[in-house]
Simulated scan of single mutants.
Amino acid sequence: MGALIGDALAVGPHWYYNLDELRAAYGPWISDYTTPKPGRYHDGLRAGDSSQAGVLLELTMRSLAEQGRYDEQDFCQRLDRDFFPLIDGTPNNGPGGYTSQSIRETYRLRVTLGKPWGQVSGWADTTEAAERVLAIAVRDARDLGALARDVSSNTALTQADGVVGAMTTAYALALGLMVQGERFDGRISDKLMARVRAGTLPFHSVTNAGEDSVPPGPERPRHTGQFASPDALIGMGHIAAAALDPAVRIEPAWKVSEVYGMPCAVYHQFPAAYHLAARFADDFESAVLHAVNGGGQNQARAILTGALVGAMVGLSGIPERFVTGLARHEARLQLARRIAAQAAA
């Protein structure tokens, strides 16, 4: 729910890279859902509506809720049957008013060229997959090995870059720990790396406990979900520690967009979300609104931040106006509760 709310909060002020233009359009501080301005991205949507990222997240949620687990065949069938007929492979088309690069590439390979699933991923370096697989992370949160397997497999359906896959899976693992009740702080990396050394997570670590050399024999070929470096796990702990260090300040906090970058790529978006999640771990409203007010690709920033902080504060920690103002919030709450019940079981 935190992710869906973050997405909808940024529908109006999405992709303003000139902050003066953003302030002129929406005032000095965006505090609630807004309607896109005429001629802007998502024109035609109303305050509280979802972008295409929210549509795909809900599609993933529905598959999980109805199948009781992550079923990749069912997920792909839903894309083929329920989603691809609504888009045409061009940017400004389809539900939510805009189709991301990675989805356009997958559409071209799958629909236009007729290639099978498993051969339709592209090289976009965005957080598109992370925005949907976070639902899988919530579902699998009590089994981080299964989480890594399912998230990395789903990510690979549309995004082929190994670095994107590693950073997406690392984010999802952090989210899984938040669902378990952990905090997003400087210790997050140690908690995840302990599982890498125990062999639970598919990140390569040259130095294991008590070892200082690479195991003998040829290196085994890597497969989907087996990542060459644990740096995607290690980096988030440093970012969180800096966010909580009184000697390291980004003021106001929305300026994370200027420190880490406003564009769409994973290496801009994940660090900003990690900073905001650590700094506002108990304050959902501040976390998502600073994500939104930073401009640029504020939608991805707010989705990723909203999921992490939402997992820490719970539904009761999300302001009621954000829940009731979200389009179709009752149906989405029902889906979220079904997935939560599956995860608990």
Rank of each mutant, 00 (worst) to 15 (best):
Q226A: 13
A228W: 13
P230K: 07
D231L: 15
D231E: 15
D231Q: 15
M236A: 11
G237E: 04
H238A: 15
A240D: 07
A240F: 08
A240M: 11
A240L: 07
A241R: 09
A242Q: 14
A243T: 03
A243G: 04
A243C: 05
L244K: 10
D245M: 12
D245T: 09
P246G: 10
A247N: 15
V248P: 10
R249N: 09
I250Q: 06
I250W: 07
I250K: 09
E251M: 15
P252C: 06
P252N: 07
W254H: 15
V256W: 04
V256I: 12
V256H: 03
S257D: 06
E258I: 10
E258Q: 15
E258Y: 13
E258K: 14
E258S: 13
V259T: 12
M262P: 03
M262F: 09
P263G: 07
C264D: 10
C264V: 14
C264N: 12
A265K: 12
V266F: 09
Y267P: 04
Y267H: 14
Y267R: 14
H268P: 05
Q269K: 08
Q269H: 07
F270G: 06
F270A: 11
F270H: 11
P271M: 02
P271A: 04
P271I: 02
A272P: 02
A273P: 00
A273I: 04
Y274S: 10
Y274W: 15
H275G: 05
H275Q: 11
L276C: 02
A277Y: 00
A277G: 01
A277C: 05
A277N: 03
A277T: 02
A278Q: 05
A278P: 08
A278R: 03
R279Q: 11
R279D: 02
F280K: 06
F280W: 12
A281R: 13
A281G: 15
D282V: 06
D282R: 09
D282W: 08
D283K: 07
F284I: 10
F284R: 01
E285A: 12
E285G: 07
A287V: 04
A287I: 04
A291K: 04
A291N: 06
V292F: 01
N293S: 05
G294K: 04
G295A: 03
G295F: 01
G296S: 05
G296W: 03
Q297M: 13
Q299V: 13
Q299M: 15
A300S: 14
A300H: 08
A300M: 12
R301N: 06
R301Y: 11
R301C: 07
A302D: 03
A302I: 13
I303H: 00
T305L: 00
T305I: 08
G306W: 01
G306F: 00
A307L: 04
A307M: 04
L308P: 01
L308G: 00
L308D: 01
A311F: 01
V313P: 01
V313Q: 01
V313A: 03
V313N: 02
V313H: 03
G314E: 08
G314R: 12
L315F: 11
L315N: 10
S316K: 15
P319V: 12
E320C: 11
E320S: 13
E320A: 13
R321I: 14
V323E: 06
T324W: 05
T324C: 04
G325H: 09
